[in-house]
Amino acid sequence: MTAPFLLTYAARRAAQAGLALALLAAPAAGRAGALPPGHPAAGAAPAQPAALPPLPPDRTLPLPARRPDAARLRELRGQREFRYVEAAAETGFWDNFWARIWRWLDGLRGTRTGRVAWNWVFYLALAGILGFAVLKLLQVDLARAFGRAPRRAGLPYDLLSEDIHAVDFPARLAEAEAAGNLRLAARLGYLEVLKHLSDGGRLDWQPDKTNRAYLAELPAGALREAFRECTRQFEYVWYGELPLSAALYQQVRRAQRGVAAASTATAVPA
């Protein structure tokens, strides 16, 4: 065998080996890059394991009934923390009465007529309170304005409109005492005290002034305290209609004379 023949034979075997390698590499490259996912040739995803069915309950053995201890139950029932039912509150007659009144008022205010009436009642009450406050500020004698009027004395003049400076008090006092009208005599004596203090410049007498206004005009001292006691006794007798015995009348007259004595003993302030 010659050398050229050997060279030709070796080249032919090398070419066949290269072709065989190229044919083996081509299917692997096509499977890796050319085929899309999911293609039958690309290979299937690994299969998930199937879920096992649940086991049936065991009914062969019966479950024993558990009962709590009776003594323990009685102990728990006796504890206040385990009492969940509140006792109904007992209501009396007046509670039920006022509850009905408030329900009726709530129902009344729910209507148009009721709201109008309620507004009128509110405004009238407010006006009454304001009027009372104004009368108190003006020092109006509410006992005389709204109370019972004192009984008439049967004398031929009206002391409410008479000027105390024009009344003959000694003669009128003697007349009332002779008639047994001791309440009127006590009133005449009190008016005589007012006249004495007015004449002495202790106070400014006016027919529409109240006894408290006269008391406020006097300075602190013995005269003011004597006049306070005299005024208290007079108001009990006249406005309170306190029945007077002869002994009580003499006590009232002593208090009235005490005011005159204190007025004389006290100098008039400059």
Rank of each mutant, 00 (worst) to 15 (best):
F82H: 04
G189S: 15
A125P: 08
L244P: 02
L7Y: 02
A262I: 08
I129G: 13
L105C: 09
A255M: 03
A34L: 15
A178T: 14
K195F: 09
Y157H: 03
K209H: 05
G258Y: 06
A51K: 11
L159G: 08
A153L: 07
F234V: 06
Q250C: 07
E175F: 10
A41N: 05
T231M: 05
A88D: 00
R112F: 05
R224L: 09
L126S: 01
P219K: 14
A149I: 13
A270D: 14
V121I: 13
P68N: 00
R109K: 07
L182W: 06
R115G: 08
F97E: 01
A3R: 05
T8D: 09
D58F: 02
A89M: 08
A166P: 03
P40V: 11
A260L: 14
G30P: 01
V252T: 03
Y236C: 06
A25M: 12
R100Q: 11
Q233F: 04
V252L: 03
A15N: 07
A246V: 10
P170R: 07
Y84T: 15
R183Q: 08
F234E: 00
A178N: 06
V237Q: 03
G92C: 04
R228G: 04
R228V: 02
R72I: 09
L55F: 00
P54S: 02
R172P: 03
D204L: 15
R253N: 09
P40S: 02
R13P: 07
D158A: 13
F5S: 15
R100N: 09
A44T: 12
Y214L: 11
L173H: 04
A179R: 09
R66M: 13
R103H: 03
G240R: 00
L194E: 04
D141N: 15
P156C: 03
L248G: 13
G128N: 13
I164P: 12
A20M: 08
T60A: 12
L73W: 00
E81L: 09
L135E: 08
R103A: 12
A34P: 05
A45E: 08
R202Q: 11
Q79A: 14
R13E: 08
A262P: 09
A255Y: 00
G78P: 00
L244G: 06
R115C: 04
A153Q: 05
G92Y: 03
A260E: 14
W94H: 10
F146P: 13
A174E: 07
R144E: 08
A265G: 04
G110N: 02
L61M: 09
G33S: 12
